[in-house]
Write a protein that binds this DNA or RNA. Structure first.
Lengths: 109, 109
DNA sequence: TTGACATTTCCATGTTTGTAGAAATAATAT
DNA sequence: ATATTATTTCTACAAACATGGAAATGTCAA
């Protein structure tokens, strides 16, 4: 089983949790500058230890990164990696089809 | 937390497992006609009960469906639902950005 | 150098998952 | 009826995960 697939699966597994998908959503909207952990906590209203656990998981698989500024930590999405992941899925979905390039503009009908 | 997000998270969680992502890959390539369970088993070389477990999970969240023809069961991707899922992610990623529509052609740089 | 703030690490606990052998079910052929 | 093929359900168990309280860490301000 390819490393690429293992990597994609690991990242998808992290996105596959309501709270973390919610975090993802917030991070996307925040753009490259990122959001403070505390801001995420306020938005989602969950205990700090629980949030921290989810953030560290997402960081571990390369979905986001953290950078400290004074006493607040900013989280920001690793957009490159997210795009790689989505590209993987789209390749599997559309370009992966034997006849896709020739006969169809979209495989998902 | 919205139902749409819960649904997306549930489907992503299923894709977030190497074996199941491998199944997904096979199903995509098989197109609408689908693949026999036995064929998937041969391709992945895992015990029938383990495979069956993964297939039922994927079915449960609406990623695929099964249809019997004689004594073989064919599995096929629910392409509509997969596209909905990918659209959700893409919306979150690109259209979700406040300034996306105005200033950028892609958010994932 | 004490106090407040922001966040993580540690710890404990209950829940879900992944795995696979063995038995059961379904469909077909002889 | 019986055997064969195809697949699921049952069962059990270890490993991983999710949750959150409490204590620890890092940073700044007075």
């Amino acid at each position: 089983m390819s490393l690429e697939l293992e990597q994609a699966a690991a990242q998808l597994a992290e996105l596959g949790h309501p709270t973390r998908l919610g975090i993802f959503r917030i991070l996307v909207r925040a753009g490259h500058q990122g959001v403070a952990v505390g801001e995420i906590q306020q938005a989602l209203d969950i205990p700090n230890s629980t949030l921290s656990h989810h953030l560290s998981r997402m960081t571990k698989v390369g979905l986001m990164a953290q950078r400290r500024d004074g006493r607040t930590l900013y989280c920001s999405l690793l957009f490159n990696n997210v795009e790689t992941l989505l590209a993987f899925l789209y390749d599997e979905c559309c370009l992966g089809l034997p006849s896709a390039s020739a006969s169809q503009s979209s495989c998902c009908d």
